[in-house]
Design a protein around this nucleic acid. Sequence first.
DNA 1: CTGTTAGCGCGTTCAT
DNA 2: ATGAACGCGCTAACAG
Lengths: 350, 350
Amino acid sequence: MSRLQDIARELDVSVSLVSKVLNGRLGTTGANPKTVRAIERAAQKLHYRKHSSAAALATGRQNVVGLFLHSIGVEGSGVSEAIVRGVSAALAARGQRLMLQYFLGADEFRAACPEVGRHAMDGLIVGGVHHHELVPELAQVQDAGIPVVTIHDQPLAGEALPNVGSDQVAVGRIATEHLIALGCRRIAHVKVDSHRASGYHQALSAAGLPARPELFHVARRYDARSAEEALAAFDAAGAAFDGIVAQSDQQAAAVVSVLLRRGVRVPDQVKVIGVDDSPFCEFFPVRLSSVSNEHFARGRRAVEMLMDRLAGRPVASVQELPVLRPRESTIGDASEGGRGAGEPAGAPPA
Amino acid sequence: MSRLQDIARELDVSVSLVSKVLNGRLGTTGANPKTVRAIERAAQKLHYRKHSSAAALATGRQNVVGLFLHSIGVEGSGVSEAIVRGVSAALAARGQRLMLQYFLGADEFRAACPEVGRHAMDGLIVGGVHHHELVPELAQVQDAGIPVVTIHDQPLAGEALPNVGSDQVAVGRIATEHLIALGCRRIAHVKVDSHRASGYHQALSAAGLPARPELFHVARRYDARSAEEALAAFDAAGAAFDGIVAQSDQQAAAVVSVLLRRGVRVPDQVKVIGVDDSPFCEFFPVRLSSVSNEHFARGRRAVEMLMDRLAGRPVASVQELPVLRPRESTIGDASEGGRGAGEPAGAPPA
DNA sequence: CTGTTAGCGCGTTCAT
DNA sequence: ATGAACGCGCTAACAG
């Protein structure tokens, strides 16, 4: 690898001319086409590579974006990876580099934070479980001139931290509306997130269906066990159901597993839907319907917003719409008659 | 954020002294403890952050490691994410930053390659599907003084590119031995990778079992469909089996799904095992046994090896041993009597 | 159209 | 025990 100086010497021109040519910064006047070509050829020949640190030092621009990811998503949901890939793809398309850092709690975040201040990145994207306690740190990062965009369900701190959200009320509503449209009348819910639960209630109420407390189980986690506990609770209450809106695909998977073991037919007798459109939904014995939070797209969006901020354009939080992914666990096998009729409009599949 | 100069001015000392103190480079003589403390306090007060580009320019060290990941693993296997997390954790523990880049083919790799030469990173880890065509590019990167470590099943180019491998023959062998130890005598195999297939044959032969061609299906992909085709082929041949060694968890999942639908009891009548210990193995209706390729650990290992190379220590390729993760699909429900007796020694679970 | 000059912030001699 | 001076490789004014 060589420096600008090497190619300048080779052609007996000045370093700055080489710099201008190679960066297309020739101003209005332009340069001698011959020397331009000569410089370009020499650069090629000498395998010239810009020293990014030197350029960064001179310009104050790193062409690096940080992605701090608070571990998110139950095992196998692929949520983290979807965000990373979305951000990665969008940055690559812009010639920006991605600096990735996972963190578990506020402490780990703080430990990683100095790195941010080090002029090591132009901007920062923070994703995953939101931590209100981190708002001050993030504000400080922004005060240091490093814009931040978050990927949380909802904005953390108003417009100070632009966010790429996803409407969790809609998640619950879309899932529930889907089951209602398919004819379910006694729909159970495993509540973890209250926004999703409220979407569930909204949909019931909009359809004139009663909210049955005995079909509403409050869980603390998104894992399979919590779904099993929910089923046990419904049993204990002697409550029958013809549909279940879970709050994760892992819960949905657990529900389907238990039902199958009991000889209950899914979706004929009970329809089941989860959240996050995890990869395994596609090859579960009964392919699992789900509501996607569109993490890949949101990662991409976050990059766009960050670039806007870096370009000085004003940016406001956005709220992406979740997307219904109907599969076998609600609409049955495609070969048995295709997608369920009476699909509610609004949330297009894939 | 402030520069060394700011704190030097604050205390009326020289920039270089501040630099030495803050970096612990005081030589043998040391410095006045008072000024040392004063400098440290001032650094704290002024929120001093080293400008990493400037430091990199001066020292030639970036404290950045690149991770180039060729998309790997069937959907939901979590393989890519495991590698990223392993690398990330190891780097974080060493104060190194992680620069991540996904690529799909050789072209995308080449497109990303210039970034490497740009003195943007101290070393490079390449993981995922191996591409022989990339060897020249990687050699060039190394010639430019940037050491490379790969994470592939087996080394790409001898010791020129140190590799963190995983013994794929052992994968097939361990899986097959496991089924044999559990009493299976007619074990089918879905072949994709030939090393794994050869491990399958080794295990059969070591146990004195015949290799039955009618129970050996050659597939092209690791996906669910290829497993379904395998089952169809076994049916067509009228070949009965009491165990199946698949080459991915997705294949294993598909096998179990089909068998359950047919009313075949897993693992009582047929035992099934896959590869990669995907997250969903844990919450499949019949929890799936698998052989792990230990991607997280290998990511960590790759970082260690890279650090060794950067420190000038000689490094050789290693081959990690796959690990058996027995679950319900081979040993049955734990509550029904625990782990299968006669477990072969050698491959410890988790 | 091209060259000169002056930094960017830090680390490292070498003096003092 | 401390400081002055230089250079890392590049960009950006400003001259010519």
